[in-house]
């Protein structure tokens, strides 16, 4: 698909912004999201091609505004729901619960 991800040669996207002494990760959630690639790949058995395609389906405006690991997160959600490892309902409920509790670890079994 020739979506927003197909960026080669596009004009008007702006200057390249660099960060001096950039850390490998910018937040704790990025560490977890990064590691979930191998973690989910092993049990869900998806291909890197399927993973990339899930990223290509992100809303195009949001694609440009969101970070790399948010793209990954979107792909995990998309693939794991599609393959039945999680349901959208239980996921949304868990997010709501975490938000209510200030985003802290409030998982009670």
């Amino acid at each position: 698909m020739n979506g927003i991800h197909d960026l080669g040669g596009r004009h008007g996207i702006g200057p390249i912004v660099r960060e001096e002494n950039e850390p490998v990760f910018h937040a704790e959630w990025e560490r977890r999201a990064f590691a979930m690639f191998a973690g989910t790949f092993v049990f869900a058995g998806y291909s890197v091609d399927e993973f990339r395609h899930a990223i290509e389906n992100i809303d195009p405006a949001h694609y440009l505004e969101s970070s790399y690991y948010e793209h990954w997160l979107h792909a995990f959600e998309d693939i794991l729901v599609k393959r039945g490892f999680i349901t959208r309902e239980e996921y949304d409920a868990r997010i709501a619960k975490l938000v209510k509790n200030g985003g802290n670890d409030v998982v009670d079994a």
Partner: peptide, 28 residues
């Protein structure tokens, strides 16, 4: 296939061997 290559002419420089084709592989 990036969009900017469609309809363009080039020369094969190296054969990297046999790989899974992403276009079918991505869609099972």
């Amino acid at each position: 296939l990036p969009g900017y290559l469609r309809g363009k002419r080039g020369i094969v420089e190296a054969d990297y061997g046999v790989f899974a084709f992403p276009d079918t592989h991505a869609h099972s």
